[in-house]
Design a protein around this nucleic acid. Structure first.
Lengths: 113, 113
DNA sequence: CTGTTAGTTAGCCTTATGGCTAAGCATGAC
DNA sequence: GTCATGCTTAGCCATAAGGCTAACTAACAG
């Protein structure tokens, strides 16, 4: 599979955790040091550190240390690959929507589980 | 956290696996039985079955059994929550883009790792 | 220099994930 | 009935994920 597949996996995986999405939302309000990010999660620093490195490896955040304080910030372009994937899928999926719509409903009525 | 947070986690998690994305892409071409989905993955049936149930629990596919054949189909609306989350994030993130843009670049130059 | 503050690293624990084989259970073909 | 087919279930294994504590390092503050 192509390289951007790896990117997508890392991206989706990073976003699959509520704590990490919480951190991102917090960072949307502006850059913040690690401790500030940790506080509202109720988790310990080392745990948050790992969430941060997952986010950073996925390219969703960038960070830099000034003195003993590490400041983190979101990287807005990071969502782009996902945006692209989503747009492509919706394009394909919706081409078949009419055909599928009734069909899927039939499936779900026949056998909900 | 809200209920749709659980949904989002399940959704992102389901999409984080390349095999599962491959299956979805295959299904975009139209409904298919389990065996047909398994074949191009090179994985064993039970393994594929588990991928399918992850996809189904995330609401991304629906399936029904006719005789001994289970047919699977995508559920296009399933991407909607993700689409909504993405749109919202991009909205917030990009509000700060000007301010952040230069800042993040500074961070990354200072300390790439 | 001593003490606090902010991260960091190392290492442990438990659960989840992703793969497998082997065996089971329907259904459809003979 | 018997047998192949298509899915299902059970259970094993290795690795990854997400949490923790404890101990260490690097700045400031006095």
């Amino acid at each position: 599979m192509a390289k951007h597949d790896t990117d997508l996996s890392a991206l989706f995986h990073a976003l699959a955790d509520p704590t990490r999405r919480q951190i991102l939302t917090r960072l949307a309000a502006g850059p913040a040091p690690v401790s500030d990010l940790a506080e509202p999660t109720g988790l310990r620093l080392p745990t948050v550190m790992r969430h941060l490195s997952v986010l950073e490896e996925a390219g969703l955040i960038a960070s830099s240390k000034d003195g003993r304080v590490r400041t983190c910030a979101i990287v807005p372009e990071a969502l782009q690959p996902m945006q692209a994937w989503l747009a492509e899928q919706r394009r394909i999926w919706e081409q078949r929507l009419d055909r599928l719509d009734a069909y899927v409903k039939t499936l779900m009525e026949e056998k909900p589980e």
